[in-house]
Amino acid sequence: MDGKADKGRRDFLILTGYTMGAAGLAGLAVPFIDSLNPAADTQALATTEVNLGLLQPGQAITAMWRGKPVFIRHRTSEEIEQARTVELKGLPDPEADEARFKDNPQFLVVLGVCTHLGCVPLGQKPTDNKGDFGGWFCPCHGSHYDISGRIRKGPAPKNLTIPPYEIKDKLLKIG
């Protein structure tokens, strides 16, 4: 037998073997890793419904959606006016107040999760510290949000997230 040809063939077989083995192990890893992702029942979009009929201007309530708090604030016309006159230049995450609503600008709906490291900001209760801009104040690392849920001061990089929602006849459906 030709020694050289034999060596080439052997290398080919070994490399093919290793490659197939690696591919097999990688394939086997998929179910293990994917099983750690949200399961189907967790994935199934849970929707939360909130009746806004009793929410007076200036009042706020907190709903729960996908395990997270959702801040719902009935804004007064002065607050809306105030939110819309803010100079966007110089905001950490510039976004016009109008852009944060489809309709019903009196009802602000944002996730109550600080975009810094996930704490729940204060400001829902009348007695809470609402921060320097009359919205919310995160006690963990001192982020201030305004009445539009925009970050104004502090370490948070983004405005409070707006979840998918719609409002029909004073009924809010989140998710």
Partner: peptide, 13 residues
């Protein structure tokens, strides 16, 4: 049963 129906590849594991 949740492992069998809902968890990704739970049935396989």
């Amino acid at each position: 049963e949740r492992i069998m129906r809902d968890v990704n590849y739970g049935w396989l594991l």
